[in-house]
Amino acid sequence: MNSLWEKFLENGRVKECPVYDMHAHMGSFNRIYLPFGDFNPEITKSRLERAGIKMLIFCSHWTLFSPDIGNRANIEVVRQLPDKLRAYCGLNPNYPEIIEKDVEDFEKYRDVFVGFKLLSDYHQKPVSHENYSPAWKYADKKGLIVLLHTWGGSQFDGPEQVRIVAEKYPGAKILMGHSCHGAWDETIQLMKDFPNVYAELCAVVDDRGGLEQIMDACGSKQIVFGTDWPWFNHHYYIGAVIDSGISDQDAHNIFHRNAEKLLEGLI
């Protein structure tokens, strides 16, 4: 039995095991009702502290779905709760001129951004598309984190696409959001082939089996915790990760140590 379980069950959070949520969002959303979708610094802080979330890295829905709003939505939110929040600079490849401008301005917002977020299945252009290249080159050079939405079988962000960018940009720290969901064998191969590629657990632990398979093959050093918050509940995912049967050391790696290494020099 993982000794952290009793502590999380008792207190909801564990001081010696802070949690970094590396895949989150912010803002209300068209297709579902999100009870905590609207940002309020006090409420957000309280929700994060309930589960011992030390830091949450997000990209606003509004950034991803409105080029007119863009990254302003991220900047305004982070600056209202800087001790708990950082953001990914959201990229929409259908507006390459905005990407160029955002990369140009990136240094102005180092208090806000730790890297970039790509949502290629929704924006309908592959992660290797040339319109993203200014951001990829910049992330490669600066060692930034790039969070990709990835899904097994996708022509836009499936394993084959991840392989292309992982080979081309070894300096970028690539988080496979949802771990190429369902294509676990390919996910594992990518993790083995590229030390800069990480599995991220949002949606992976909706069902049993995926995390166990990844852990068996790769161990815990290339896995980070994420929830799509405010979509999914932190305690639910923390319970799921622990219920996969991992050791205390593996839980520490997944919940905070790997994230702390990734964020070194970025926050």
């Binding site: 379980w5 909801g12 309930r50 069902d207 305690h235 639910y236 923390i238 319970g239 219920d243």
Partner: peptide, 17 residues
């Protein structure tokens, strides 16, 4: 269970607001 992790819904409920 067995599709999902029991500890997930247990931990959520125990610490629900």
């Amino acid at each position: 269970f067995p599709v999902r992790y029991p500890k997930a819904s247990i931990l959520q409920l125990v610490h629900a607001d």
